[in-house]
Design a protein around this nucleic acid. Structure first.
Length: 530
RNA sequence: GCCCCGUUCGUCUAGCGGCCCAGGACGCCGGGUUCUCGAUCCGGAAACAGGGGUUCGAAUCCCUUACGGGGUACCA
């Protein structure tokens, strides 16, 4: 039997990081077995603008490379898969037929209770300190009974006629053998008076119709499983294999990670610093924001965030894989191939795992370090273009310069957006901004500094070749002849050529800029300091 | 309230009765290297939630308390 798994997002307009992990597990399970991964859109209660709210989710999956075999088209329209439609809002007839069948077989009944009446019974039981068990007093099992209730002006919902004795046993691939007493289960409503059907029914019907073999979903669905098993069994379906994955918890906390609690997470310094890094990149790239739109999706709980600041999909996936799953006591680097080879539900942890922004960044840095020059350029180029470092047409000379800068930046670039930190190599010499405080410290307050710099400038000017080696050689000779230490000039040199106190290796910097630009900048700095 | 699920360093985790006075990773702290930053190299601190059992022996099995999470909807 081919393995078929599914992920059923509702069109909310964003893809939550915890959801991605669940989706990843589903995807891995299907793909490693040569099976299919299905995307089913849970839009039963949204209605309008589904397409618009769905696109960010599909884009997220696309970016991550979690391709789906069946489900909506990438543009958000329905696709003609063998088990479509893949929008639950379009599958109502299927659910109604199932409800009718359940009624027919006596596994469900028409119930004419009014919500208030039920509520009263419930409160009464609660007051008496008893567990509420519906005595089915408004249940109609025959048409006569139904007619009588209807004569009173009542209308019926369809309820499951749950067993009141015995227990429901099943195996969860992550949690092992489980049993729930049937008596704990209420007679859940599966169809409203207006004929529309509820989640549990829809879910079971869809999983069956779509031939889902493994239901891998969040832990909050575990208590729902018995009633779904009841529905499935009553309908004569084979049961899928179940696996309930723990939730992803807040950074530094144990509560479930939610995109609604951003304020709170911002108090966590690691979370806040990731946010800040993102905001800085976005600001420099001119991506930002209309505030409102932004805070909703531009934050580390939502995957879009990572795409927008230049994370690598593989890094995000690698981190997420290890958030609750491990192979052994030491293997941490998993590319897709390795994930597909080794993943198994049995090794998914039972306990929730808390989201650690720092570790995510560490994974991203590792993946970035593995990239070739070309790949690194590909990751950074979009940002450099947005910031105007490189024109949209990306001329050959611009690309060559950008590549050299990136290469000199080396592992200082952890994510694509970090390329924006090196604007000093792209701004015109006349526009270069000097850090006032550093100029003060290294040029103004140091009495000898300007004279030395002026002298060294002449040495540089005399160089025929202007390379890392030649400039280094030049400085060495200069330092020797002046009888000073490296340190006595290098900081002044750095701030005058880059405007800053920190940067790449000094000679990388000089060579990167080239003779003319170095001289022009040094002249400006000297002028500024004098 | 009731019913479920969970609990190893700050965090992610290894561990499925002796290999564990608990291993790895991220982070943290100290030091080396270095023209700054980054990187890198050495070294360090850091955990079996508490209490009872079972056993020759428990992080591992059982019970219990605490804590966290979820369910208990004509939400998904």
């Amino acid at each position: 039997m081919t393995v078929r798994t599914r992920f059923a997002p509702s069109p909310t307009g964003y893809l939550h990081i915890g959801g991605v992990r669940t989706a990843l597990f589903n995807w891995l399970l299907a793909k490693q077995a040569g099976g299919q991964f299905i995307l089913r859109i849970d839009d039963t209660d949204s209605g309008r603008n589904v397409e618009e709210a769905l696109l960010p989710i599909l884009n997220g999956f696309k970016w991550l490379g979690l391709d789906w075999d069946e489900g909506p088209n990438v543009d958000g329209t329905d696709s003609a898969g063998p088990h479509g439609p893949y929008f639950q809002s379009q599958r109502g007839e299927l659910y109604k037929a199932a409800a009718a069948k359940l009624l027919e077989s006596g596994h469900a009944y028409r119930d004419y209770a009014k919500p208030e009446e039920l509520q009263e019974l419930r409160t009464a039981a609660e007051k008496a300190g008893e567990k509420f068990v519906y005595d089915r007093r408004w249940m109609a099992e025959t048409d006569e009974q139904a007619a009588a209730f209807e004569a009173e002006g009542r209308s019926a919902v369809v309820r499951l006629k749950m067993p009141r004795k015995g227990k429901c046993e099943f195996t969860d691939e992550i949690r092992g053998d489980l049993e729930f007493a049937w008596g704990e289960e209420a007679d859940h409503v599966i169809q409203r008076a207006d004929g529309s059907c509820l989640y549990h029914l829809a879910n079971v019907v869809d999983d069956h119709e779509m031939q889902i073999t493994h239901v891998v979903r969040a832990i909050e669905h575990l208590p729902n499983t018995p009633r779904q098993i009841f529905i499935a069994l009553s309908l004569g379906y084979d049961l899928p294999t179940y696996a309930h994955v723990p939730f992803v918890a807040e950074p530094g906390g144990t509560a479930k990670l939610s995109k609604r609690k951003l304020e709170k997470y911002l108090k966590n310094k690691d979370f806040a610093s990731l946010c800040n890094a993102g905001n800085e990149i976005a600001a420099k790239a001119g991506l930002l924001p209309d505030e409102e739109n932004n805070s909703a999706t531009f934050n580390p709980v939502i995957v879009d965030f990572y795409r927008e600041i230049g994370f690598l999909p593989d890094a995000v996936l690698n981190y997420l894989l290890l958030l609750g799953w491990s192979l052994d006591d030491s293997t941490e680097d998993f590319d897709r191939e390795a994930m597909l080879k080794h993943f198994s539900l049995g090794r998914v942890n039972k306990a929730p795992a808390s989201f650690d922004p720092q570790k995510l960044v560490a994974f991203q840095a590792r993946w970035m370090a593995k990239l070739s020059d070309d790949e690194k350029l590909a990751s950074c180029l979009p940002f450099m273009q947005k910031a105007g470092f490189v024109s949209v047409s990306a001329r050959e000379d611009e690309i060559a310069h950008a590549t050299r800068v990136l290469s000199a930046a080396d592992d200082r670039i952890k994510m694509g957006g970090d390329a924006l930190n090196f604007d000093d190599f792209f701004t015109a010499d006349s526009d270069l901004k000097f850090d006032e405080a550093v100029i003060q410290k290294r040029l103004v307050k140091d009495e000898e500094a300007i004279r030395r710099l002026q002298n060294f400038r002449e040495q540089l000017a005399a160089l025929e070749e202007f390379t890392v080696e030649s400039t280094e050689q030049c400085l060495k000779q200069f330092v020797e002849s002046e009888g000073i230490k490296f340190n006595a000039i290098i900081h002044a040199l750095r701030v005058s050529t880059t405007g800053r106190a920190v940067g790449f290796g000094m000679f990388d910097t000089l060579a990167l800029l080239g003779k003319e630009r170095c001289l022009a900048r040094i002249d400006r700095a000297i002028e500024l300091a004098s």
